[in-house]
Amino acid sequence: MIPWNILFPETASFDFVAPGILLAVAVTCLAVSLYLLLPKSGRSSKTARRLGWLLGLITLSLFIITGQRLGNLGEEAAFLMVSLVAVVSAAATITCRSPVYAAIWFALCLAGVSGVLLVLGAQFLGVATIVVYAGAILVMFLFVLMLAQPTGLTTSDRITNEPMLSTVAGAVLLGLLSLSIGRLSAEEPLCCRPPSRAAALGGTAVNQRPNESIDLLASDQVARLGGELFGHHLVAVEAVGILLLVALIGAIAIVSNGLEGSQTEASSLQEGSQT
């Protein structure tokens, strides 16, 4: 066990403050700092942006203080680092003016998220997030961005719709979520205990007690995930395959329709200029 009072002496003095109040202060600071950092019409003053950064730092430290101690310095440090990368670059994604920079910040956020997934024991998903998102989806976004907006920033990038209302909405959502997360307790309520997995499946007695039998960090975890995916969820996998096919055909159909339209327009324009 780590003596946290030695590492963070101020946490001892925070004991008299309820963690709910700290969370409320953190959520409010987050909302104000995002409001200050979001691009607004005109030139936002440097002081406002610096205040936004300062409030963002305060928010992060408050979230770190109110977060649950994992009781292990290595685990704590790993989780803290990757989640800080994810959260900070997510905030930079939505506050960055240039959409290209926003996409690159989003790539960094994906790196952080995949780190969080790795810490949480999802090896396959951590790698798949990088491969699918950063390797495919993000590159597609960047292609569209460069096709559509080669000249740089437009006015719409420097103005946001209702920054006050949207930050308030996000803060309310985060406050409600953190309230319900803080109330989670280890004991399952007796009244509504879910049926066991073996009873639900009705098949052979799978004597798997949660939290002890399945080791998520075993070396054959990916193989077992594959077995789960193609065993219990085979129909869903087929459905997702059909969904991907439909999306592919739909995208090609829409694009080719648009291309035909623009080609006929272009050819008519060319004919008009030739005649």
Partner: peptide, 10 residues
């Protein structure tokens, strides 16, 4: 939750 609400704000 933080990522979700940041995305909502964005």
């Amino acid at each position: 939750a933080i990522l979700l609400s940041l995305g909502l704000i964005g």
